[in-house]
Simulated assay, not measured.
Amino acid sequence: MTTQSKEYTNDPSYKTLKRISSIMDEAIPIPGTKFSIGGDALIGMLPVVGDTVSVIVSGIALFSVARNGLPIRLILAMAFNLLIDYLIGLVPALGDFLDIFYRANRNNLKMLEGYYEKNPEAIHQVNKNSTGLIIFTAFIFLILSGIIITVGYFVKSMIWQTFGLS
């Protein structure tokens, strides 16, 4: 690797993501092992609120990086990692355990480094994750649309029956 390809390490948004990744995913080493846990796993033990605080902190790093004019697919891929981490953490007990192993911030840092270094594997991961977010968003949109249409139909039916319009 050339020195020129590592210039991104001086970027303040990269440093912010790296710092948050370290704090949220790897801050506390477990003695006698090569394993560590971070603030994300600890904060996440507070039901719903902890995971929400955790994703907000991680979102700050994502926002910082997004302001640098990076490709939308990279930002979407990083957001998808945070969404998966948030959804995993919402599962009672099991989510707290799994949250220790799914390190969204570290994954985002690796994707960003891979993007800057033009690593084909990282670029493939970016494309896969951004597509995953697009599909997930479309799925949620369809579900919410179905719910709104169904509720609207029942409300309309109740109103019509109340006023004898049916």
Rank of each mutant, 00 (worst) to 15 (best):
L70P: 10
I84S: 03
I123N: 03
N68D: 10
Q125G: 13
Y116S: 02
N119K: 07
Y115H: 08
N127Y: 12
L90R: 12
A93S: 15
N108C: 07
N107P: 00
Y115Q: 00
N81K: 11
R73S: 14
D99Y: 00
Y115P: 09
I88T: 07
Y115I: 01
V91M: 10
G132Y: 14
N127L: 08
L90Y: 04
M78D: 06
N108D: 11
N107Y: 03
T131K: 15
L90G: 03
A77Q: 10
N127W: 12
F101Y: 12
E121A: 13
Y116P: 00
M78G: 07
G69P: 12
N68E: 15
P71F: 13
L112M: 07
Y102I: 00
I72E: 09
P71W: 05
D85A: 12
E113D: 12
E121N: 14
V91H: 03
K110P: 02
A77I: 03
N129A: 14
D96C: 04
F101C: 00
L98N: 03
L112F: 13
F97H: 02
I75C: 01
L76C: 08
V126F: 09
N129R: 14
A79K: 08
Y115M: 04
L70G: 09
L90W: 01
V126Q: 09
I100Q: 08
L109D: 09
L90P: 01
G69H: 10
I72Q: 12
N81W: 05
V126L: 14
T131R: 15
V91P: 01
Q125F: 15
G95Y: 08
R103N: 05
S130T: 10
I84Y: 08
A66D: 06
I84N: 08
A79T: 01
L90H: 01
A122W: 14
A79R: 03
E117G: 07
A79M: 13
N81L: 07
N129T: 06
L109T: 06
R73N: 08
S130K: 07
E121H: 14
V91I: 15
I75D: 01
E113F: 14
F97S: 05
Y86V: 00
D99W: 06
L74Q: 04
I72P: 13
D96K: 09
L83V: 13
Y86P: 00
N119P: 09
A122I: 09
R73A: 02
M111A: 04
K110W: 10
K128G: 01
F101P: 02
L74F: 09
E113M: 13
P71L: 02
H124V: 11
I100H: 05
L76P: 01
L82K: 03
V126D: 01
L87H: 03
N129K: 13
E121C: 01
N68F: 03
L90K: 14
R103F: 02
K110M: 14
F101V: 08
D85G: 13
K128E: 07
L83M: 09
A77C: 05
R73K: 13
G89V: 00
E113G: 10
D85L: 05
V91N: 08
F97D: 00
Y115D: 04
A66E: 03
L82Q: 07
K128T: 06
D99S: 14
Y86G: 02
E117Q: 15
L98W: 02
L109K: 09
Y115S: 00
N129Q: 15
G95F: 12
A104Q: 01
A77L: 12
L82Y: 03
R67D: 00
K110V: 06
R73M: 04
Q125R: 15
